[in-house]
């Protein structure tokens, strides 16, 4: 390596952990050439390492330390048995209290299978009856342990796309906070986040029957229709919908047509696990249309927004951005 710039680039790649095995070999050879090289490399890496922000919770580590010490010492000394016994007694009392409190609960949580998808990611679940479920960011799917081909009931908060295995004898039921959906074999999208104003269901194939909670009203939904429920007033509408747009998220795409700004913000926050703070009411009145892929970073999305609308953004903390209104000068 004669060119010093090549070495510089190599070192920079090494620091960020982006070197291939052969590049590492090259770097090692360079470092072994002289003590000065070695010192240069290690001093630079030292600054790099020391500038890493501290993320550890030391207090928790200390607790962990004491806990592991305690566990070790209880194994070693019989003397500790007495204190263990008293702690066990306390735990037992606590457990009994807990049991009495929760015994009214008809659903025993121990018999529940729960899938939770954190913000910023998506996931697939294949149920034992052959039904496929795509789960969007921040969603939770649960079903009881005796879920089977005959007993097909699941609960959902958040957004999911169901591809239900067809079985006309045994209907498949999706329970949400606002309505139950009963189907035989279809494909549909349900979006029912706790914090949203609307809960929706969009059908792509087959037929679904929707029953509102806390009332006897039912509604059939046909392919290409979107059922929109105002969660507060419990009023609903049926619109024709672009099914592809509604379900694009499961293929890692985000297509939106004429959605309101708060809606857009909420989706981006879930999708990227970030917090977007909007402090200017002027931004709220805009509607947005657009399309992008999930591989794009939040930076790229915000940059695109910045280019096409009077928005500027600024990073405030680790996962938080502040959006502000910026008058666009038209030349």
């Amino acid at each position: 390596m004669k060119d010093p710039e090549l070495t510089e680039n190599l070192v920079a790649r090494f620091l960020n952990g982006e070197c291939s095995e052969s590049e590492l070999n090259e770097l090692l050879a360079w470092a072994m050439q002289s003590n000065q090289h070695q010192k240069d490399l290690l001093d630079i890496k030292d600054i790099w390492d020391a500038s890493l922000p501290d993320k550890q919770n030391t207090q928790n580590q200390l607790l962990y330390f004491y806990k592991s010490r305690y566990e070790k010492s209880t194994r070693a000394y019989l003397l500790f048995l007495r204190s263990v016994a008293s702690i066990a007694a306390l735990l037992l009392i606590g457990l009994l209290i807990r049991l009495t409190i929760y015994s009214n609960d008809p659903v025993n949580p121990a018999n529940l299978q729960v899938f939770t998808v954190p913000l910023g990611s998506r996931s697939n679940v294949l149920l034992s009856d052959g039904t496929e479920v795509n789960l969007n960011s921040g969603s939770k799917l649960s079903y009881s342990n005796n879920f089977s081909k005959e007993n097909r009931i699941v609960s959902l908060t958040g957004e999911a796309f169901f591809h239900v295995k067809s079985d006309s004898e045994h209907p498949f039921t999706v329970q949400t906070n606002d309505f139950d959906i009963r189907v035989n074999g279809t494909q549909f999208n349900v979006c029912s986040y706790r914090e949203d104003i609307f809960s929706t269901a969009t059908l792509s194939e087959g037929k679904i029957n929707l029953k509102l909670n806390h009332s006897d009203r039912t509604q059939d939904v046909k392919p290409g229709e979107k059922f929109i429920l105002d969660r507060k007033s419990k009023n609903f509408t049926l619109n024709t919908a672009d099914v592809r747009q509604e379900t694009a998220w499961k293929d890692g795409e985000f297509i939106f047509k004429n959605i309101s700004f708060p809606d857009l913000i909420k989706r981006l926050e879930r999708w990227y696990d970030v917090k977007l703070v909007v402090d200017d009411p002027r931004l709220i009145k805009y509607n947005y249309s657009g399309r992008f892929k999930n591989q794009e970073t939040i930076w790229q999305v915000l940059d695109a927004l910045k280019l096409t609308s009077p928005i500027d953004y600024k990073k405030t903390t680790f996962r938080e951005f502040q959006l502000s209104y910026k008058v666009k000068l038209i030349n």
Binding site: N9, A12, R13, L15
Partner: peptide
Amino acid sequence: ETMIFRALSLL
């Protein structure tokens, strides 16, 4: 890459 290296050298 060059910038990272230069920045660290300056530091």
